[in-house]
Design a protein around this nucleic acid. Structure first.
Lengths: 249, 249
DNA sequence: ACAAAAGTGTTATTTCTACACCCATGC
DNA sequence: GCATGGGTGTAGAAATAACACTTTTGT
């Protein structure tokens, strides 16, 4: 039996997901390692003819990583001819990742739709990769392993999109624990933007968005002075996600 | 001979272009009317397997409307299942727009990539529609005729994207003649944003972008006081297109 | 005591918003 | 002369950018 029932799939169309996490002042990206293959890949897959593409993105992510209920944002269609590579497919075939029946499917020219999402990171998190994949790991954006096809460019494009979106949309809800310190939130911004921000100005600007609820609690146990904890006002956060932040015109 | 050599086309993938123009304080959209068919459509088409999707968008636009050298921006992939409609394809078949050989091609499930562009409007402009189409016309965004499939939603989505892009990118170069008055530029913004702007504040803000060159000339012949003419500083305009305008963080 | 992170406020500059009067032109 | 659109400035409010000292805590 072939790996996939190709008859029901949308031909020449794939989906790739760039899943961002955040840990210790680094942006992490979720990548999969195929069995018997030296390169890594994004969690991706194909589109069932009977399902909406956006829904399939969610389904694929779940199938390949075990992640559920992730809100994915479509950001670009990658449609260059040269993104396909016969050499790559042959290598997959030689590594027995693709069987004979599947070869004709994989040798098609593919275009792929990129989706990205931000999810909570936990270093001990266990993913349940599909049985094609040997492992599913977080890797630092600065330290992405060798990726198949144009997956590195897809990651870079997603990061660029995210940087831009930061100007219109709130961020952090999915990247941080429920309660977090101002410094932690600032670190998220600094990391994504790849530049340092002034502590006092950051605090003022973020608080002006009126999306944060200061709790009177403080982070216990850490070294040095205990910082205050904040949490998001979920209503206002989601409202801002929909309407965007102050925009200009 | 079938209309298209389907063997060389990427299956299940189409492109639709939303071409915006601007005239008399209205946003115009370029739409095509098929022969023997009561509904209108966006200029769109299929993707050759051997060509980049982005390039094919330009090619398709030229083929269907005669427009050359238009810079198209990809903005969304429309991939819902329900956007396809057997009834629609049957209607096209009954109207002899699709022949027997083509039917199997058109009955596929399609996803479509949306592109948009802003081009100069001239009321007397002659388009050279392909021979499937009866005419190619500018229609007001407020007065879009009945469109096939989800083309109306594609137009609305493009407009929404454009509104958002206005905060990051300069606009007007392709929509206005080489020299234009401040009021004309303001009208472009007001029309796209669908809201009035203060004349003096608009002027100040736009001039702060440092993309406009004031000519000392004035528009001749018009009624009432003669306005000054401006033109874009092309270098700075294109720089701003690439880098975006002031963004926030 | 000291090293490291956290809390906090002011000032100067820039940007934003709201608003009104006079000018040029064609009729 | 009048209707219409075009040109221009200011004052108050808000946002931004730059900047330093004190407090808490663990070692």
């Amino acid at each position: 039996m072939p790996l996939i029932t190709y008859q029901t799939l949308h031909p020449g169309l794939s989906i790739d997901c760039v899943i961002f996490g955040f840990y210790q002042k680094e942006i992490k990206v979720l990548v999969l390692k195929l069995k018997n293959f030296e390169k890594w890949s994004l969690p991706g897959g194909f589109v069932d003819q009977t399902k909406d593409v956006d829904d399939e993105a969610t389904n694929i992510l779940k199938r390949r990583t075990g992640l559920k209920n992730v809100f994915l944002r479509q950001f670009h269609l990658f449609g260059d001819v040269k993104r396909n590579s016969d050499a790559h497919i042959n290598a997959l075939f030689n590594s027995k990742i693709i069987d004979n029946d599947s070869l004709i499917w994989f040798k098609q020219r593919f275009v792929t739709v990129g989706y990205y999402a931000l999810i909570p990171f936990s270093p001990s998190q266990i993913f349940t990769p599909d049985n094609l994949s040997e492992s599913c790991e977080w890797r630092s954006l600065k330290d992405i392993p060798e990726m198949i096809l144009d997956h590195k460019e897809i990651i870079d494009s997603a990061h660029k999109t995210l940087k831009k979106e930061l100007n219109y949309q709130p961020i952090g809800l999915n990247l941080l624990p429920e309660q977090f310190t101002m410094s932690e939130l600032q670190a998220v911004y600094e990391t994504i933007l790849e530049k340092p921000l002034d502590r006092r100005n950051f605090r003022r600007k973020i608080l002006n968005f009126a999306m944060l609820i200061p709790t009177k609690k403080q982070r216990v146990g850490g070294a040095y002075r205990s910082p205050y904890l904040y949490q998001f006002d979920l209503d206002k956060y989601h409202l801002a996600l929909q309407n965007g932040l102050s925009s200009g015109w």
